[in-house]
């Protein structure tokens, strides 16, 4: 039987992390499925585990002038209910799983899982989200895009814990997340898309495009976005074929039991088209 650590506060938690090799569990909804054993048996974790869901220090949400700070153990539902969470994030969360899962699952859990189909990641990449990561001796801040290295690969040291998700406060003319699932709710994405832009004097001042589940991790290319800045909407609409050709090589999805790569690729490009066509 594996050991389960139940720290009372963050200090104790960081101490355990410093001393033991453990798997961190927040809401546990996904970890439990990944480690499912049999009905009536304990969850089949392969390593000792550390539960952080009871740490009140990780359950707050607050803001300053520039950022919104979301505690790692705050449930998705609580984020949706909050007045200060970014609208795009709330809309994304509404597309994730079901009410029951949203009541326990966390944003940090979705990040720590680093699944290519993790819905929240797409919008978080789009907003340049950062993470606060703590260990007993250190606190660091890292961009989400630098934290996730591949399918279920993250750069978290064994003594470290994600403590906050930090999202810049941004102004967009329009921002949305579109999930393409096998049904209209409660499902894992076949692919997903997020797009946002800002406009001033009829010229694009900020434009962001991200795709989920079409590569090992979220696809977002800042250099390509830069090339669109300064253009008028009409100019962008006029160069739509060029735009899709830019993104084409970045979209390299796979075949699996939920869909196939031809569909994922075609629809990813379609969603980019839809986004550009609907710029106003």
């Amino acid at each position: 039987m594996v050991e389960a650590y139940l720290p009372k506060d963050l200090d104790e938690c960081l101490k355990i992390l410093n001393e033991k090799k453990v798997k961190i569990i927040a809401g546990g909804t996904d970890m439990l499925i990944q480690n499912r054993s049999h009905t009536g048996m304990s969850i089949g974790y392969r390593n000792d585990v550390l539960y952080i869901n009871n740490l009140n220090e990780l359950k707050n949400i607050y803001e300053d002038d520039a950022f919104v700070y979301i505690g790692a153990a705050l449930s998705l539902e609580k984020i949706m209910e909050s007045d200060i969470a970014p609208k795009l994030l709330k809309e994304t969360i509404l597309e994730m799983a079901s009410p029951a899962i949203r009541h326990t699952a966390t944003l940090a859990g979705n990040i720590g899982n680093a699944s290519p189909a993790g819905d929240s990641l797409v919008s978080l990449y789009l907003m340049d989200a950062e993470l606060e990561i703590r260990s007993i001796n250190n606190t660091r801040r890292v961009f989400l895009k630098d934290f996730i290295k591949g399918v279920r690969k993250i750069t978290l040291e064994s003594d470290e814990l994600i403590t906050k998700v930090i999202i810049p406060k941004l102004m967009f003319e329009k921002a949305y997340f579109k999930k393409v699932g096998p049904r209209l709710s409660d499902a894992i994405s076949k692919l997903s898309f997020a797009g946002a832009y800002q406009i001033y004097n009829n010229k694009i001042t900020d434009i962001r495009i991200a795709f989920g589940a079409v590569n090992v991790t979220v696809v977002r290319d800042r250099l390509l976005e830069k090339k669109m800045i300064g253009k008028t909407i009409e100019e962008l609409k006029g160069m739509i074929d060029l735009l899709t050709s830019w993104y084409d090589p970045l979209i390299v999805p796979i075949d699996d039991q939920r869909s196939n790569k031809v569909y994922r690729k075609e629809v990813a490009i379609n969603l980019l088209r839809e986004f550009i066509e609907n710029l106003i």
Partner: peptide, 8 residues
């Protein structure tokens, strides 16, 4: 295996 939810 996807069966309909109330949303569908």
């Amino acid at each position: 295996y996807i069966i309909p939810t109330a949303m569908d």
